[in-house]
Design a protein around this nucleic acid. Structure first.
Lengths: 140, 140
DNA sequence: ATCGTTGCAAAACCTTTGCACCAAT
DNA sequence: ATTGGTGCAAAGGTTTTGCAACGAT
């Protein structure tokens, strides 16, 4: 919830400002990875405005506190989504329509962790992208 | 091997040019994901030169033929590596020293495929990044 | 009142496009 | 000779930086 994130922000010495509340609201409501300009667009539709620089900075803070997570989308720009599964971010990206859907799974993480440990690597965060076709585009 | 890739290029109607050979050589030799400017830098050290636009275009072709694979690195730019494991690209990225190491595993892919199929999604390519600490940095 | 935040302008950076020249076939 | 490929210049788009004004505490 937005209130929880705000509380964490404040506990870390950050202020509870209008831009931060707005960005958190949009991220929670849309429930999919959004770019800074996506967020600005949603706000514009609602007659609200935030400078893109501000959005970048809000997202940076959210990510630094692990409240959100960045992914680099195929367009080559950043998208952010709230961190719901503690360091496990898996995305299904449809190569046809571009739809992005996020999921999480602890067993997959464990499997990856074991594999990495064979190389002496200690994994903390998991980010995975599956490129393929979503159910709708597959039928065509 | 570079020669094999060149042969595939030619079979698809592309020419075997100096820039394409050079890029393939560097990718094979360095054996880690490289950005276009990384590649240009390595060449420069050897007294050779390729325009960055050319490198971008060579990488695009290699990726379109599945000879290489693009990843969007944490710096926000593209890195490419040769495709050794047919659509399975897993990276361990050390958060401390920045080292990137690639691995592949069919079982992990199968696990992800099954999970995705529950959502009606048909996965073709896997790209995964584990952020954590490499063996050297973990000891410190 | 203080000090972190925001917005604006401008810069920096990566990537793409247009076009004339060049080179592999 | 033909056709695709390269290099250059310039544009496009995303992200970052510097700074004055603002606002949460």
């Amino acid at each position: 919830m937005v209130q929880d994130s705000i509380r964490i922000l404040q506990a870390q010495g950050h202020k509870a400002t209008r831009p931060r509340k707005l960005v958190l609201e949009i991220l929670e409501e849309m429930d999919r990875p959004l770019s800074p300009y996506d967020i600005q667009g949603v706000l514009r539709q609602r007659g609200k405005y935030l400078n893109h620089v501000t959005i970048y900075r809000v997202l940076d803070i959210l990510c630094s506190l692990n409240l959100a997570h960045k992914m680099l989308s195929s367009g080559g720009f950043v998208r952010c989504s709230l961190d719901m599964a503690e360091g496990c971010h898996r995305f299904m990206v449809c190569q046809h329509c571009g739809a992005i859907r996020e999921f999480a799974d602890k067993e997959l993480c464990q499997g990856e962790n074991e594999f990495a440990r064979n190389f002496g690597f200690h994994a903390e965060h998991h980010h995975s992208e599956l490129a393929g076709l979503c159910s709708r585009c597959y039928r065509k």
